[in-house]
Design a protein around this nucleic acid. Structure first.
Lengths: 305, 305
DNA sequence: CAATCCGCTGCAAAAAATGCACCAGTCCGG
DNA sequence: CCGGACTGGTGCATTTTTTGCAGCGGATTG
């Protein structure tokens, strides 16, 4: 849509932090971009950007404007999608920000399932911790967020919430693997391999031990679940993960998962959400319904918080 | 804002019903306008208008688009207003659709009061029956509606509702003028001058007599309250009006108003409302608060309906 | 203090929008 | 049944707008 080119330009400048860099990204000259910005400021009667020695920054007026611009841009995307939907083929683009946990199994499955029906729809999947995921919604760089545990921003609108009991991950030959569920206390008798604080699992575990005498002493910390899982196998250690991140089938991999007893660790919650009040494009809305249904079928829905 | 010129063009064509007429209204050539429309349809990949022998009409895709376009246009207006608000002077434009009743006294007073504080704000006041007023909100040709009685459309969002007991209007020397309130039955012994069905007062009176044996036999019907009031004075007849439409002061005019007993006619309700979900420009929002406060101070607020 | 990065401007070239004249189709009254 | 009055659409010359290039002045940085 040509008419919102100026809006794209503004957005690009904000994201780039400098007119010249934005111009490069947009594949036009800095002078053209510069003059467009000046023209807009002229029309508005107010500068949108503060000029700094190293680039530009949004002014107060700019802050108001950029909000509008981004809403406008994704709104038009929605309209396009609705119109395209009229003529049969569902096309469009879906951008998701989500925790690591859904990367290995859940999301690939769901996207493949969706694309089987609607091959004209493209996807953009961003791995984001929960805080960054919410920011991505806010600045319209993601349509949906699928994150584990805390939701902070008021702009987050929950579409679905499901319970995710923490599971202990261990080698198939691990002594604890004999039981159906494990107690947290038992786990701590073995070396613990823990994800970093940016992960929801960590937060859930820490709140769980907060009011008990139990202390967590991880021997390994990592921001890669991939690494943690493989490490646990090496040293007979224990790692933790939530069900959605664990492949369901009796994986050929050498490890198993056992739920931690709910008396020790209360289930965390996995949230599917969008930017509050935003009308989603058709494709996004359908995809959201699909994964919501899949989640609801697979896990208990969490009511309160 | 130059960048939404194409949007204005689309809107103009929709309102005019033909490209040539719209072009005239926009003070450009029909060919220029025509080509802009074609360009937009080309970008969208779908025709926005159906070509009829006598002009154009929105296609299904167009229906979707025009909704977006109008939201977009008034949204930008809001942003402008917010930005202007930053630099001190409140400027902007307020468009109101309202019943006749508020024209003589209430609205002039309130607008004058508002403009005393904010002289840079301009107004557009449209006299609309309640149905047309709601439509004006829906197609963004009005920001606020102030209407008496029924609200139909789901898109109407009530900001305030106040009770308006029906008053009987008569000459100062009329026999009934002696009483504090009048009974409906007594009124009917005199000639009745009634507003037409498009007015809320009429609707309220008709529902009131619906389940009683009383029958209304107006000798005069008119869509002009001005006329009705003056006529009543001539023939010792009785007309009806709601309090907000009656000048408060012991008017130098020769007529008086007496409330009709609430046992006979239940109070109607005057609604102040906007388009549901719309974020109003600063100026509009402030003005809405002002008249809401004025209404609340002057009349009983109606809760349910 | 030189190198570098920034936003901004004069001027000429390129691109886009506009207006004019005109075409083809449809409707309507005589 | 036909001519006038509508409609939207198109080719072409003209005007307006946008863009790119080269260069200026200012501020930060190593």
């Amino acid at each position: 849509m040509r008419h919102l080119l100026p809006l794209r330009y503004i957005d690009a400048v904000v994201r780039a932090g400098s007119i010249r860099r934005a111009a490069e990204a947009l594949a036009i000259t800095s002078t053209a971009l510069n003059r467009r910005i000046l023209a807009i400021e002229d029309e508005l009667g107010v500068p949108i950007f503060e000029r700094l020695p190293r680039g530009v920054r949004l002014s107060t007026a700019g802050e108001i404007l950029i909000q509008h611009v981004r809403t406008q841009l994704s709104d038009m995307e929605r309209v396009r999608s609705q119109i395209a939907d009229l003529s049969g083929v569902r096309r469009g683009h879906i951008s998701i920000a989500c925790s690591q946990a859904v990367m290995p199994v859940f999301l690939p499955e769901q996207i493949a399932l969706y694309r089987r029906e609607h091959p004209a729809v493209t996807f953009h999947v961003q791995r984001r911790d929960r805080e960054a995921a919410e920011e991505a919604l806010a600045d319209h760089s993601a349509d949906l967020a699928l994150v584990f545990e805390p939701v902070r921003l008021a702009e987050f609108e929950t579409l679905l919430a499901v319970e995710q009991p923490v599971h202990a991950l261990m080698s198939r030959r691990h002594p604890l693997a004999a039981n159906g569920t494990v107690r947290l206390r038992d786990c701590l008798r073995y070396p613990i391999a823990m994800p970093t604080h940016s992960y929801g699992v960590r937060a859930v575990l820490e709140t769980a031990v907060l009011r008990s005498s139990i202390k967590l002493h991880p021997v390994i910390e990592s921001d890669s679940f991939e690494f943690l899982r493989h490490y646990a196998r090496q040293e007979n250690a224990i790692s933790f993960q939530i069900p959605i991140g664990i492949s369901q089938g009796a994986g050929s991999s050498g490890d198993v998962s056992r739920p931690v007893d709910a008396r020790d660790v209360k289930p965390g919650i996995l949230y599917l959400g969008q930017l509050r009040g935003r009308a989603l494009p058709v494709a996004v809305s359908r995809f959201a319904s699909q994964i919501a249904a899949a989640l609801a079928a697979r896990f208990d829905e969490a009511r309160a918080r």
